[in-house]
């Protein structure tokens, strides 16, 4: 009789000891599981990268003649110098699927060998499956007369470096 009453009263109590222990234990396990997932996610995301710097020296301004396009292969950037002598830096990565597009002087276009996208000197798409024009990066001049390109800063088409 007594046992049955005890059991009965325990089941009526909202936070029975059994329930509490189950919550604590299960909660701890759940927290540990979620925490492990977070920690594994942190583990998988690298904290340091050995990649070429996004901000780099492209060369002295004297090395670029007027009305020229020079490709920096390692950084995948075009340094463009207009007829009047101003500079801008344009990405050489085709906006379609990421191949390096090359400047073809005989056709006057930047052409991608993978799927036939073509861009004009300003970076706008003139042909092919590319969805967007080639983005432009910020280009500044440092104290020694070197061009400094920063690929982490995208600038508009109207931004040029006057020297």
């Amino acid at each position: 009789m007594d046992d049955k009453e005890e059991k009965h009263s325990k089941e009526e109590n909202a936070m029975s000891r059994r329930y509490f222990l189950e919550i604590v234990g299960g909660g701890a396990v759940l927290t540990a599981a979620v925490g492990s997932a977070v920690v594994i996610g942190q583990y998988l995301s690298p904290n340091v990268l050995r990649e070429p710097a996004l901000r780099f020296k492209a060369g002295l301004i004297e090395n670029f003649s007027a009305d020229s396009i020079t490709l920096d292969k390692e950084q995948k950037v075009f340094i463009v110098r207009g007829k009047e002598g101003y500079f801008y830096a344009m990405s050489a990565v085709c906006t379609h699927l990421g191949c390096i597009a090359n400047w073809k002087p005989e056709d006057g276009v930047v052409a991608c060998p993978c799927h036939g996208s073509k861009f004009n000197k300003e970076g706008n798409v003139v042909d092919g499956p590319a969805p967007r024009s080639l983005p432009r990066f910020s280009v500044t001049l440092d104290e020694q007369g070197q061009l400094v390109v920063d690929k982490s800063v995208i600038v508009g088409e109207d931004v040029i470096l006057k020297v």
């Binding site: 222990l21 701890a28 396990v29 927290t31 540990a32 925490g35």
Partner: peptide
């Protein structure tokens, strides 16, 4: 319960 908490 105890071991779960200790484990956590």
């Amino acid at each position: 319960a105890l071991s779960s908490v200790v484990f956590l």
